[in-house]
Nucleic acid binder design. Structure first.
Length: 499
RNA sequence: GGCGCGAUAGCAAAGCGGUUAUGCCGCGGCCUGCAAAGCCGUUUAGACCAGUUCGACUCUGGUUCGCGCCUCCA
């Protein structure tokens, strides 16, 4: 039985969908004005894992992750870049798709763009005005009146009084209450706008505020009430609080509020040096930067290795550690021809795996099962265990590549190469270095040794070994090791992998 | 100032009122020409102070420290 930690209740609750066997899930996606960073990666990977587990558990899932393609930052950035908003957002949507695909994130069922739902937003704002939850200010902005919504603060655990006390919001003279938030922004020069019936000095022309987007897209696609709403912890307030205020007020019938979401899920932050990674702090690493150095599966593994609600500290050291751990799993799978048969959920390890994920998606515990299975594979060489390992890992979107592809695939070897004697080693040069540079004493650059070259060296070493010339054999091995190639002898022959 | 979350071994990270988490690193052994990988064994825990209990890392209270939200943020 699946249990989910519900932010609304601040406890784990048994998950009961609105419609038996079906799950409707909405996750706040990205504002596309820049490349995604690791914080975004975490949201994508975490809720990808959630949707995978729900499907594995037999639910029919509709997963919606929106795209915010109109907002202050987008307008500003497009102006800076001298490109249209459409060009800018399209570029970064493509980049996001690339990044998420590399991380093994499956596409959500629907990825609505805010700009396609402006009509719906106007409708909902009109309904809010009509019901007395919103008002048109003198400047043409439309604000939500928080005082009129009884449950304001129920998600974030804040009261209006507390909020006002610690208030850092700039005083906007157009607002009736400092906590009121904007639903519709009256048009400004050089900004895109849509017509609306809200009136005001600009005849209603304007564009939607951020919060209203999600209320409209979620209810349009999933209905007035749906099962799960997810997002990063930082969206809890004010974004999600405002979504509730908008949706529940707009969808109230005869004065009775309609509960918008049954289970609110929030993932923890990615941190750098114990501080939240964010655009505003400037301490962020984009996904593509990290992928220059680390295999995408290592990054996915790194994210799933921690519980989704815990903070996750990012550093090269942690990624290195994750890489070694994942290497252990792939090493266990190496040489096994694994069957793609259905998972036997009666198997003790499968049962343990299921129990872990059913307990609020406890991926660290599920991972422990994977390592126990790897140990079993190494010990018994049993194909069944290897199959189970691969298939269970597949539920998390891991371990699906050929082991050798992971272990031998090209990785970039940094620095230090200048000291190596690579004479005669067929080296393929990538990046900034050149062949001669790589072999010179002060080479700075990156290179990878071709697989064919490695095989040649293994042959040479084998010959040396046969001739009992161990000094030569060790020299070759050492040289390869310095180049990041580790040799492993076994009764079946010599295999290799990249460090 | 208000509200919330957390503190686990060298690092990372879970469960659990009494029995090995797990991964990396370290140490000993097996294997190996020697290594690596793997296997076996093993050293390092539960911020601090009280309380509940036969028994607490696990429950309760307090202290200290860290983080987050209260403004855009995944």
């Amino acid at each position: 039985m699946l249990k989910i930690y519900n932010t609304l209740a601040r406890e784990k609750q048994i998950f009961t969908p609105i419609v038996a066997g079906k799950v409707s899930m909405y996750v706040c996606g990205m504002t596309v004005y820049d490349y995604c960073h690791l914080g975004h990666a975490r949201v994508m990977v975490v809720f990808d894992m959630v949707s995978r587990w729900l499907r594995t558990s037999g639910f029919e899932v509709i997963y919606v992750r929106n795209i915010t393609d109109i907002d202050d930052k987008i307008i500003k950035r497009a102006n800076e870049n001298n490109e249209t908003i459409g060009q800018l957002t399209q570029r970064f949507i493509e980049a996001m798709d690339e990044d998420s695909a590399k991380l093994g994130v499956l596409r959500p069922n629907i990825e609505p763009k805010a700009t396609k739902y402006v009509d719906g937003m106007i409708k909902m704002i009109s309904a809010l005005i009509k019901k007395g939850f919103a008002y048109v200010a003198a400047n043409g902005d439309v604000f939500y009146s928080v005082n009129n919504f009884e449950g304001y603060g129920k998600l974030s655990g804040k009261s209006l009084e507390d909020l006002r006390a610690g208030e850092r919001v700039e005083v906007d003279t157009h607002k009736k209450d400092p906590m009121d938030f904007v639903l519709w922004k009256s048009v400004k020069p050089n900004e895109p706008s849509w017509d609306s019936p809200f009136g005001g000095p600009n005849g209603g022309k304007g564009r939607p505020g951020w919060h209203i987007e999600c209320s409209v897209m979620s209810s349009n696609l999933l209905g007035e009430q749906f099962d799960i709403h997810g997002g990063g912890q930082d969206l809890q307030f004010p974004h999600h609080e405002n979504e509730i205020a908008q949706s529940e007020a707009a969808h109230s019938h005869d004065g009775k509020a309609c509960q918008m979401v049954n289970y609110w899920m929030h993932n923890g932050f990615v941190r750098v040096d114990d501080e939240k990674m964010s655009k505003s702090l400037g301490n962020f690493f984009t996904i593509r930067t990290v992928l220059e150095k680390y295999d995408a599966e290592v990054v996915r593994f790194f994210i799933l290795r921690a519980h989704y609600r815990s903070p996750l500290n990012y550093s090269d050291k942690h990624l290195d550690d994750a890489k070694l751990a994942l290497t252990r799993l792939y090493t266990a799978l190496r040489g096994h021809v694994v069957s793609d048969t259905a998972i036997d959920w009666q198997h003790p390890q499968s049962a343990r795996f299921k129990e872990a994920l059913d307990d609020d998606f406890n991926t660290p515990e599920a991972m422990a099962v994977l390592f126990d299975l790897a140990n079993e594979v190494n010990k018994t060489k049993a194909v069944e265990a290897a199959s189970l390992l691969k298939n269970l890992a597949g539920v998390l979107g891991l371990l699906q590549r050929d082991a050798n592809e992971f272990l031998q695939g090209e990785v970039i070897i940094n620095a230090g190469v200048g000291q190596l004697n690579l004479e005669g080693l067929p080296a393929k040069i990538t990046g900034t270095g050149t062949s001669s540079q790589a072999q010179s004493t002060h080479a700075v650059g990156e290179f990878t040794v071709s697989n064919k070259g490695i095989e040649q060296f293994i042959e040479q070493r084998l010959a040396a070994k046969k001739a009992k010339n161990f000094a030569e054999a060790d020299r070759i091995r050492k040289e390869l090791a310095d180049a990041g190639i580790i040799l492993e002898d076994s009764p079946q022959g010599t295999t290799w992998r990249r460090a």
